[in-house]
Simulated scan of single mutants.
Amino acid sequence: MAVAQGAGVEIRNVSKSFGPSGSQVTVLDGVSLTIGMGEFVSVIGPSGCGKSTLLKVTAGLIDADLGTVTIDGESVTAASRDKKIGLVPQSPALLPWRTVLDNVQLPLAVNKKANSDRILRDAKELLSTFGLGNAMSKYPGQLSGGMQQRAAIARAFVFDPAIMLMDEPFSALDEMNRDLQRMALLDFWQSNRKAVMFVTHSVPEAIMLSDRIVVMAAHPGRIAQIIDVDLPRPRTADAYATDEFRDLEAVVRTALHTQMEDAHV
């Protein structure tokens, strides 16, 4: 399936620094990136390169010092108001006193006016799709870490946002669980194409999920290279064993090693 066209995410010359005046550290320096509607883009790079900061600026959680971000042609503020942004943080951030179903339905009860012209997803059906059909009445404390993260992803999809921003959602899981979760996400996304910015430290994860991989450089954070992932879709776990996958993995790892070496010069 070809990548859908549309405005998606437009990041233009974004810069961000932290710290007191006179001793500020530049975390992002003139970053520009476009993610088309229906395109899955992963952002990867050495620690301190600003991956999560870029995602937080895009989500409107922090303001850029310079530059602009638009979501589906709107400012981040307007896109947030119109519920066009779905966010999956590193921690599931489920409310412990609400059941899994109630947690997933929560976005439907917030800013109901923004739901009036959109197709809302059935929370029960969504949970079943993510393998949580038998866990709807349970509380977050009764779930494994992987199940909690799947519930958080379902919550982000339930109001059918145009853009999905995901900040290392599987980083706390062991490798076996991580692979199960990424394949579940891939299966769902391939049938429900959204524009996705996905921050990760995992090279195989970035390749398996993405249309493009953005490799960032550190000190200051900037885009060093963008690598196209030409593996055919839909993808399955069989892709891991192909020569094309291994070749791409070598390309991405070489790009990362170059940036890590430059960061320590």
Rank of each mutant, 00 (worst) to 15 (best):
R12P: 13
P89L: 15
Q181P: 00
G50C: 09
G60C: 11
E249H: 10
P232K: 00
G141Y: 00
K138C: 14
Q181R: 00
I226D: 00
Q259A: 08
A250R: 13
G19A: 05
V196F: 06
Q5C: 11
G8K: 03
V57C: 07
L143M: 08
L108H: 11
V43M: 08
A172T: 04
A224C: 10
T242W: 10
R155P: 01
I44E: 05
V229K: 00
M183I: 15
M136V: 13
E175I: 13
L95K: 05
G6M: 03
L94W: 05
L87A: 02
K83R: 14
L231G: 01
E261H: 14
S47T: 10
G8R: 00
D238P: 03
I85W: 08
K83S: 08
A151L: 07
T258I: 15
S47E: 11
S32V: 09
L87S: 03
P89S: 15
R121T: 06
S42I: 02
A152R: 00
G60E: 10
S91I: 04
G131R: 00
Q142N: 09
E205W: 06
L66A: 11
V27S: 07
V158M: 04
A114D: 03
S75E: 13
F157H: 14
K83N: 09
M1D: 15
T68K: 06
W97M: 08
D102N: 11
G45P: 01
A255P: 07
S42L: 01
A263C: 11
I153R: 01
M37A: 14
P169S: 11
L94E: 02
A135M: 11
G6Y: 04
K56I: 05
W97V: 04
Q142P: 04
E74A: 12
